[in-house]
Design a protein around this nucleic acid. Structure first.
Lengths: 135, 135
DNA sequence: ACACTATGTTAGATTTTATAACATAATTTT
DNA sequence: AAAATTATGTTATAAAATCTAACATAGTGT
């Protein structure tokens, strides 16, 4: 996880601040939590603490609501987005794996070459000081 | 004022959050406010709301205190820093003014050139379509 | 030894937030 | 059209967080 991801998910804001920042009522914010669109952290005393990510999501919800999308629609949209994000990271992992594989192949070839060079040097000029190639 | 400056001075955090973020007690934070090292905003109900800048200052104070500097010293340091910042912006303004002046001179020269070009064209070849130079 | 500094602690008042229940306009379903 | 559902408002009550102010105190500086 990167530093900015940590910062964006750090629980910092009480509901009052979030209300001002998002122009949503406390009732709305709690309602969206009830529907699991956000999961703010809690203080020891059970007060909600929202992260920057939570606020982003709330602003997104607000936009969609303003555009007439209902809760079911929003849930679906979020679900799809999450799937997208998931497959995206999976693709990235797969690509990384492929890259790692071909790296491995490169290394294999390199090894072969080195061995060949060794043989060549030994058999032809009897010098055998491969290490020169690695300085 | 830039966008990030606005963001950094936006009153967002209640004292509890600031306590956790800075590892200072409420008593300490209020004490530093009493000594005008910070000036957090207030809610309608008189609760303090701190900005990111406030938190930076508090962390700076904490550092200095950990290094054994007392309040008087911290005040002096902050005072000096503020003076520095002020003279710095003044220098910037002065430089800008100088640049603006020489810009003005450049424009003056350019104007002269244009007028000359106009005269030249009119008197010699009778075409006078200066506007070509400005496309 | 004495005054001052920086912080702790406590008390009582006020504000903010929590949950839960009931109310309701707007929309959807039957 | 009537009934059900949805998204939000409103209200009541309890608990948590914060406020100011006062007093306490260990450590510093003179």
């Amino acid at each position: 996880m990167t530093g900015s991801e940590i910062r964006r998910s750090m629980p910092l804001f009480p509901i009052g601040t979030v209300m001002q920042l998002t122009d949503l009522t406390a009732r709305q914010i709690r309602y969206y939590e009830e529907h699991q669109l956000i999961s703010p952290a809690r203080t020891d005393g059970n007060r909600r603490l929202f992260s920057l990510n939570d606020i982003d999501v709330l602003l997104e919800i607000k936009d969609l609501i303003d555009q007439g999308v209902n809760m079911a629609g929003i849930k679906q949209l979020f679900f799809v987005k999450e799937q997208q994000a998931l497959t995206e990271t999976m693709n990235k992992q797969a690509e990384k794996a492929r890259r790692d594989l071909s790296d491995e192949e490169i290394r294999k070839l390199l090894r072969k070459e080195i061995v060949q060079a060794g043989r060549f040097n030994r058999s032809s000029s009897r010098q055998g000081n491969i290490h020169r190639f690695f300085h």
